[in-house]
Amino acid sequence: MHIPDGFLNAPTWIGSGIVSLAGLGFILGKIREKLRDKTVALMGVMSAFVFAAQMINFPIAAGTSGHLLGGVLAAVLLGPLPAVIVITVVLVVQCLVFQDGGVTALGANVLNMAFVGTLLGYGVFSIVRRIFRTPAGFLLAVFLGAWFSVVAGAATCSVELWLSGLVPLGLSLGMMAGVHALIGIGEGIITCLVVSFVLKARPDLVAVLNEETRHE
């Protein structure tokens, strides 16, 4: 759902750019004291993985395709704030180097995928995780969080399309959320597969679990 140049009108892309910049400023300030070398190395590897995975569009119904966003994947493995930075780095490089997402729409794309998708998806993950405290419940939380991240990002995108005068809000929201509800299933499956793999291979790298053991 990378928005190209030309879709959004100036008030919408400038407005969403300001919101994203303010959000990044807040996160960079908040993360500054807590970041360790280990997390930085993981951020690098995670960014590389998310970039590669985002290249792999998988077909869904009716001649459409989708690809991983990776926000909830990064948030479960790194924590939500480093995850926002990871997804932002990926979006900036895609935009500036590969023309994937317009430069004028970069703020909106960061807002939709790095902030709304990642943070709300992680919120859903955290809630479901607390309800079902079993290994299967953990994966259910990962799936639902990942699924929700795509739908929430798409819903925010649909509001921007509406604000730009392209399409009525209800129609925009219905179509964007509808098609991304399907893409989100792919997001959920891939995220569950990768998280299960890391849980088996290197459970010490899963930030969410590390925090829980520290608190207990």
């Binding site: 759902m1 990378h2 928005i3 879709f7 290249m55 792999i56 569009n57 998988f58 077909p59 009716a62 001649g63 459409t64 395709s65 989708g66 690809h67 798409a154 995108c157 649909s158 399309l161 399409v167 925009s172 179509m175 964007m176 098609v179 991304h180 893409i183």
Partner: peptide, 13 residues
Amino acid sequence: FASSFPDGLEWVA
């Protein structure tokens, strides 16, 4: 091998 079908946003557009 990635699918070249339009993505969700392109489809809506």
